[in-house]
Lab assay of single mutants.
Amino acid sequence: RLGFCQHHDDEVLHLYCDTCSVPICRECTMGRHGGHSFIYLQE
């Protein structure tokens, strides 16, 4: 089961930031992890 983002309370962690080695949400890709390399996580 996927968890929720600690920075965006209502967002599920659907992605993994390869650059930072952390799970991220959709909102994170447009903010603090913008321009980073990421992949989609599987449930």
Rank of each mutant, 00 (worst) to 15 (best):
C25Q: 01
H7Y: 05
I24D: 02
C28M: 02
L2S: 07
I39E: 05
Q42E: 10
Y16F: 13
R32N: 11
C28P: 01
F4Q: 05
P23R: 12
Q6H: 14
V22G: 07
G35P: 06
G31H: 09
Q42M: 03
L2Y: 11
H7S: 06
E11C: 07
H8W: 04
R26N: 05
H8A: 06
C17V: 00
C28H: 02
D9S: 14
S21H: 09
F38M: 11
T29H: 13
H33A: 01
S21E: 11
V12C: 11
T29L: 08
E43S: 05
H7P: 03
Q6E: 13
F4Y: 07
Q6G: 06
E27M: 09
R26W: 05
Y40G: 15
H8C: 04
G3M: 04
G31M: 10
L15W: 11
I39S: 13
L41P: 15
G3F: 09
H8S: 07
R32D: 08
V12W: 04
R32W: 06
H33F: 00
V12R: 14
Y16E: 08
V12K: 12
C5I: 00
C28E: 03
L41G: 12
S21K: 06
F38C: 05
L13V: 06
G35M: 03
G35I: 02
L2I: 03
P23D: 05
V22D: 09
C5K: 00
H33T: 02
I39T: 15
C25M: 02
T29G: 13
E27D: 03
L15G: 03
R32V: 13
C5S: 00
C20L: 00
G31C: 04
L15K: 13
E27C: 05
G3P: 03
D9N: 04
H8V: 04
L2C: 04
H7M: 07
Y16L: 10
C25G: 02
I39N: 15
T19D: 09
L13G: 04
T19C: 03
T19H: 08
D9R: 14
Y40I: 08
C17F: 00
H8E: 04
S21W: 04
C17H: 01
C5A: 01
I24V: 08
Q6P: 05
T19S: 07
E11K: 09
V22W: 00
R26G: 10
Y40P: 13
C5R: 00
G3E: 15
E27L: 07
P23W: 11
H36M: 00
I24T: 04
H8P: 05
H14K: 14
M30R: 14
V22L: 14
E11D: 07
D9Y: 10
M30C: 11
C20P: 02
V12G: 04
Q6K: 07
F4D: 12
E43Q: 11
H36R: 01
C28Q: 02
F38W: 14
H8G: 08
C20N: 00
L13R: 04
R32C: 11
C20Y: 01
S37K: 14
I24G: 01
R26D: 09
G35A: 14
G34Q: 10
L13Y: 12
C5N: 02
G35C: 06
Q6D: 09
D9I: 13
G34H: 08
T29I: 10
G34W: 03
E27G: 11
M30E: 15
Y40D: 15
M30I: 11
C28D: 03
H36Y: 01
L15S: 08
E11A: 10
F4W: 03
Q42S: 14
S21R: 12
S21T: 10
G3V: 08
H14T: 09
H14F: 09
M30Q: 14
C25V: 01
H14Y: 06
T19L: 07
L41C: 13
G34E: 09
S21G: 07
L2E: 15
E43F: 00
M30W: 04
G34L: 05
H14N: 15
H36V: 00
R32F: 11
E11G: 11
H8Y: 03
F38H: 09
D9Q: 15
R26Y: 05
C17G: 02
T29Q: 14
L13I: 03
S37T: 12
L15T: 11
Q6C: 08
G35V: 04
I24S: 02
C17K: 00
Q42N: 13
F38T: 15
T29Y: 09
G34T: 14
M30T: 14
T19F: 12
H14S: 04
D18K: 14
P23E: 12
Q42A: 11
V22Y: 06
C25I: 01
G34I: 10
D18M: 05
Q42L: 08
I24N: 00
H8L: 07
C25H: 02
G35S: 13
Y40T: 14
T19N: 09
D10W: 07
H7Q: 12
C5L: 00
R1E: 06
C25A: 02
S37G: 10
H36D: 02
D10Q: 14
I39D: 15
L15C: 06
Y16K: 11
L15F: 12
Y40F: 08
F38P: 08
C5T: 00
Y40H: 14
Y40C: 13
E43H: 03
M30Y: 14
E11I: 06
C17R: 00
D9M: 08
V22C: 01
E11P: 04
T29S: 11
H14L: 03
S21P: 01
V12Q: 12
R26M: 04
E11L: 03
R32T: 12
S21A: 11
F4I: 10
T29P: 05
G31T: 11
L41K: 13
H36S: 01
H36Q: 01
C25D: 02
R1N: 15
D9T: 15
F4N: 13
L41R: 14
H36K: 02
T29F: 08
H14R: 10
D10E: 12
G34Y: 03
C17S: 00
S37Y: 03
R26T: 12
S21L: 10
H7I: 07
M30F: 08
I24E: 02
